[in-house]
């Protein structure tokens, strides 16, 4: 994929209006990437969150690492860049279960809990999820093209596939 790659790291949220821009979250495991897109406004945004909720955290620094805080922050930043909520397309990828061995229940649940937290946060904001690619046992790289809103998901087994 050509364009100006902008890597969205863990705990980051990036909003772009650059027509050449491509937002990329590499190697999502149990993390989720929530993507928002306003075609008419030419605004695309991606959140790469790691943990479902800020409520059990001792850390109050970077809120974008938490799904429950990061999703509303992403919407705010999209709006601040001129996106309209009524036009917003929302997508979600990630939330895999990386460990399938017994005895790792705590670690196992994080992916599913991230997905559930994102669903809840979107519902609270009155946003509907268009397409998702969540769960499973494989890591994903997610790319969002600012000019078209097209998203691709790459896994090691399946290669790169269009999501929308």
């Amino acid at each position: 994929m050509t364009g100006n790659i902008h890597s969205v790291s863990i705990g980051e949220l990036v909003v772009s209006k650059s027509p050449q821009g491509v937002l990329v979250a590499y190697g999502l495991g149990s993390c989720v990437a929530v993507c928002m897109y306003d075609a008419a406004g030419g605004v695309a945004g991606m959140l790469h969150a790691l943990l479902p909720s800020a409520s059990n955290s001792r850390d109050s620094g970077n809120m974008a690492k938490f799904v429950d805080k990061g999703v509303p922050l992403l919407l705010e930043k999209m709006k601040a860049s001129g996106a309209l909520k009524s036009r917003m397309e929302v997508y979600m990828c990630g939330g895999a279960q990386m460990l399938t061995a017994p005895g790792f229940n705590n670690t196992l649940n994080i992916g599913a809990r991230n997905v559930a937290a994102a669903e809840a946060a979107l519902k609270d904001l009155g946003l509907r999820l268009r397409v998702r690619d969540t769960g499973g046992n494989s890591g994903r790289t997610v790319k969002l093209r600012v000019s078209t809103g097209k998203i691709t998901v790459r896994t090691l087994g399946q290669g790169e596939k269009p999501l929308n």
């Binding site: 863990i10 943990l51 955290s57 001792r58 990386m98 790792f104 670690t107 790289t141």
Partner: peptide
């Protein structure tokens, strides 16, 4: 604990360990 083997992208394997740390530290 007994070990588990994961074959996947570097980033996905590494985020697995971050998840248990990130609630307390960046």
């Amino acid at each position: 604990s007994p070990p588990a083997v994961v074959v996947d992208m570097r980033g996905s394997i590494l985020t697995m360990v971050v998840a248990l740390v990130a609630a307390m530290s960046d």
